[in-house]
């Protein structure tokens, strides 16, 4: 989760995972601090929810959504935290980690000497990221239900939506990673992520933005993700969720396509 901590520090999400080859060993050894990093990963969006949703929420009071529905500020912010943590987790895993393994650990040079193909490596990485991200999402939804911010049924529907968000950003991240030149580029990516996090209808309804900004915002992937998950968790009606789902599916497909083309070129050189 990028959060309100500066994105330069986002690297803490990916940095330990740079040692992911070691993580395999740690999986067996179960003694490294890396495990604590993994397990505590779900904590961050929960902390944000308490701080912003409840702490700041006490100052904001209830919000009236465009449809006329009134929700608590925590109920408004929680789905956005879920969407952005799915984004951050997936991006960190697929960009930072992937870049480190490819460029510095030369892990993949070893793997492509076997019959495994670059695209399969990418899918493997994405799969691992998704398993982890899904567990975090599930834990967060449990917290939301526990705080009475949504119902069990809606949480169950929001879960696959959160997984879809993870896939879309994971695929996007893999494509982006193949364009990364140095660690410095991650500063830029972190900044972009943080900007998305601030302005994707996360903390205030997009309707509050000036018209031009609002149109730009509505085109971004995080806005669509927040819109989708928030719609489900507050029980919005209408068909606009179909647009969100279609958008995320297309993003997943395009991301994977670009990533597989570029990876082949980078590895078989």
């Amino acid at each position: 989760m990028v959060g309100l901590v500066l994105p330069r520090l986002v690297s803490f999400e990916g940095a330990p995972r740079r040692s992911a080859s070691v993580a395999e060993r740690n999986l067996a050894a179960l003694k490294s601090a890396y495990w604590l990093v993994l397990i505590s990963g779900f904590l961050e969006p929960v902390l944000y929810l308490f701080s912003i949703g409840i702490g700041v929420g006490a100052l904001v009071g209830d919000l009236t959504l465009p449809g006329g529905r009134v929700v608590s500020y925590a109920g408004f912010v929680a789905p956005a935290m879920l969407a952005s943590s799915a984004m951050t987790g997936a991006l960190a895993e697929t960009t930072f980690n992937f870049f480190g393994k490819m460029k510095y650990m030369k892990l993949y040079d070893g793997i492509i000497a076997t019959p495994v193909q670059p695209f399969e490596i990418a899918l493997g990485e994405l799969g691992w990221a998704m398993i982890r991200g899904s567990l975090y999402s599930a834990a967060f939804l449990v917290v939301m239900v526990g705080m009475d911010l949504t119902s069990v049924g809606r949480a169950a529907t929001a879960f696959p939506a959160a997984v879809l968000v993870g896939f879309a950003f994971g695929a996007l991240g893999m494509a982006v990673a193949t364009f990364m030149r140095s660690w410095q580029d991650f500063d830029l990516m972190g900044s972009a992520q943080f900007t998305l996090f601030l302005f994707s209808g996360t903390f205030v309804p997009a309707e509050a933005y000036p018209a031009v900004l609002r149109w730009v915002v509505e085109l971004t992937p995080l806005y669509r993700s927040v819109h989708l998950i928030r719609g489900i968790s507050v029980g919005a009606t209408g068909w606009s969720w179909l647009l969100d789902v279609a958008y995320l599916l297309v993003l997943t497909g395009v991301g994977l396509l670009v990533a597989s083309r570029r990876m082949g070129r980078l590895l078989y050189k």
Partner: peptide, 12 residues
């Protein structure tokens, strides 16, 4: 002992 500890410092 490893950079995982730095991640934990941020998280906790």
């Amino acid at each position: 002992p490893s950079d995982s500890y730095l991640a934990l410092l941020f998280r906790f």
